[in-house]
Each structure stands twice: as structure tokens, then as C-alpha cells.
């Protein structure tokens, strides 16, 4: 038995090469692929990997943001900045009908809101532009039902995910053939962990929204979660007042559904140090997952990422 020490960089190198391989396969095999860009840290890493995969050429496909209209203001500003810097072909998909109806996280339950503003908007965007493959940043470590997710995840007509129809994955060889009405979701970060994502952001100097870093922000406490009051649409309860507390976010989504954590980590090194001692999974801060053990699975079957 020899002593073997593996540097973290070597693990990241291998994960990076795997992701690039998946990107190239997707770009070549599908007629009209799209990168789903949701502005957060995983999307930032995805975008960086896409730049690496096709250099010296640019991205050979557009990026699409599914906008629920309830994202943090700063996320939208960050998105527009990155799009301008990189010259991306950005498509935005909004469920306009639901916006007109006034669907919000406060008017509908989180599950129904997510279905209408995220799942339906995603499906509509994919259909409108005729995308046959959508690349996303889902990781297998996020949630237990994700452990069985494929890298190339098949969707039946109507975007349905059927666990029993998923294709077996051998070696580096993917079956990217589609029959009528089928489409593919592709997950280049499948084998990454949350810490890998942070370590990679640090190593590569990847730009991310500052919401990930601690700063005094106006928050209220709802059902044990710290929610940031990001704009005037937030309905404060009788006598309720936003307090300034030093918080950061582990995942970014719709601001009324994103729980903040109290923290003073205002730089990457401190943040990663906090991460390494954290023992709570990141989705714990996401209010949409908390409804029943298999709620993620139920959402996926409907076409959610």
C-alpha cells in the first residue's frame, strides 16, 4: 500500500474535462441546443465551461433565461452585464399570461407558483424556439432523487420525465438520437459537488453576483427563513419591518423564496471556509423543495429541471 495524495486541482481538472466533453457532444449532436442560464453560481460555472469548450470560437448556441419576474434585481443586472461582456445571444422566457393574471409567490402556493412561472415558462420557451436540447446546471448531490439522473436526460413529448424510460449511460458514449417529439436535458455538472463549484469559481476567477457574499441587507423572518425585501412588491405584515442583517445566499432564485443565511463571509476564501464546515444541504434554503420527501421528483415529472 502506497501513500497517495490527490490535489484538489486534479479532481477539478477531471470534472472540467468531463463537462467540456459533454458540451461538445451536445453542440455537435443536436439540431438546436440551448444553454439554460439562471444567473447563479452553477450557471456562472456552466457559462465559463462553455467558453472553454469551444475556444477560440464563441458559444455555438444561444442562452435562455427563464424569468419569473420575481428574481433579485441584482440578478437581472448581472445577467445583462454578462450578456453584454460576452456577446451572448440571450433569449428570455416569461409566462406572460400568468404575469398579466398577477401570479406571484404570495398569491399562489410555492408549488403552484413554481409550476406556473418556472416549469410552464421553461416549457414554453423550449417550444417557442424549437430547442431539442437544453443544457442545465443540475448536480447529482443536490437532492436525493437527482442521484439517478442521467447526464443526458430524455424527455418524452410534452417534456415529461419518465424515470423508467431513461437511457442507460455507458462510457463516454451517449445516445443522442431523438424520436418524434422527444427532447433532451443535458447536465454537464452532474458529478460536481457544491464545494467543487465554489473551488472552481475561486480557481478560475469566475464572476458571480455579489448576493453570494455577506452584506447588510433588509430581511424579514418568515417561517424560520430569512427573506430579503428586494422591492416594494413584498407584502409586509401588520407591524412588520425589514431589519438590516448581515446575510448571504447559498442559492439564488426568486427573492421571496430564497432563504438567506446569517454570515460575515464577504469574500470567496471566507465563504469556502464556511462551506467546508457547513453540514446542511444547500436546497435547505430553497422554500420550493420542502413539500414532501419526493416533491423534486414530482416537479421533474412535470418538466421542471
Amino acid at each position: 500500500m502506497t501513500d497517495i495524495t490527490v490535489p484538489y486541482a486534479a479532481v477539478l481538472d477531471e470534472l472540467e474535462s468531463e463537462a467540456i466533453h459533454i458540451y461538445r457532444e451536445t453542440a455537435a449532436a443536436f439540431r438546436n441546443p440551448v444553454l439554460l442560464y439562471s444567473i447563479g453560481k452553477d450557471s456562472s460555472v456552466l457559462l465559463h465551461l462553455a467558453l472553454k469548450a469551444f475556444a477560440p470560437a464563441g458559444l455555438p448556441f444561444p442562452v435562455m433565461h427563464v424569468d419569473t419576474t420575481w428574481k433579485f434585481k441584482e440578478m437581472i443586472a448581472f445577467r445583462d452585464k454578462r450578456v453584454a461582456e460576452l456577446g451572448l445571444d440571450l433569449r428570455i422566457s416569461v409566462n406572460e399570461a400568468a404575469v398579466t393574471e398577477g401570479v406571484s409567490p404570495f398569491s399562489h402556493g410555492t408549488h403552484e407558483y413554481t409550476r406556473i412561472m418556472k416549469t410552464v415558462a421553461l416549457r414554453e420557451g423550449i417550444d417557442r424556439y424549437g430547442f431539442d436540447a437544453a443544457i442545465g446546471g443540475a448536480r447529482r448531490d443536490e437532492e436525493r432523487s437527482r442521484a439517478k439522473e442521467r447526464v443526458f436526460s430524455l424527455r418524452e413529448p410534452g417534456h415529461r420525465w419518465e424515470p423508467r424510460k431513461q437511457r442507460p449511460e455507458f462510457w463516454r458514449t451517449a445516445n443522442t438520437t431523438l424520436s418524434e417529439g422527444q427532447s433532451m436535458r443535458v447536465f454537464p455538472l452532474s458529478n460536481w459537488t457544491e464545494l467543487d463549484v465554489w473551488r472552481y469559481i475561486e480557481r478560475e476567477g469566475i464572476d458571480i453576483p455579489s448576493l453570494y457574499f455577506a452584506k447588510p441587507r433588509p430581511v424579514v423572518e418568515r417561517d424560520g427563513a430569512l427573506i430579503m425585501v428586494d422591492d416594494e412588491r413584498f407584502p409586509l405584515r401588520e407591524g412588520e419591518e425589514a431589519q438590516m442583517r448581515s446575510v448571504r445566499f447559498r442559492t439564488l432564485g426568486c427573492y421571496p423564496l430564497s432563504g438567506a443565511v446569517e454570515s460575515t463571509a464577504d469574500n470567496l476564501a471566507d465563504l469556502i471556509a464556511e462551506m467546508e464546515t457547513s453540514t446542511v444541504s444547500e436546497r435547505a434554503g430553497r422554500l420550493i423543495d420542502g413539500e414532501g420527501g419526493g416533491s423534486m421528483e414530482a416537479k421533474k415529472a412535470e418538466g421542471y429541471f
Partner: peptide, 29 residues
């Protein structure tokens, strides 16, 4: 800890390949 899909939890068996990661003390993944 290694359970996956709801259908399997009900049946108490594993019906598909599941992928998980583990970090060894020497840094190997």
C-alpha cells in the same frame, strides 16, 4: 441515505443505477 425515487422507497428496493460521490481523506474523489 442511498434511497432515491419515491416508487423505490415504497417498494423498499433499488430499481436503477444511482450515482453518488465520496471524498476520501487523501483527497481522492
Amino acid at each position: 441515505l442511498t434511497d432515491g425515487l419515491e416508487a423505490e422507497r415504497e417498494q423498499g428496493i433499488t430499481i436503477d443505477v444511482a450515482y453518488r460521490h465520496m471524498n476520501l481523506p487523501n483527497g481522492r474523489r
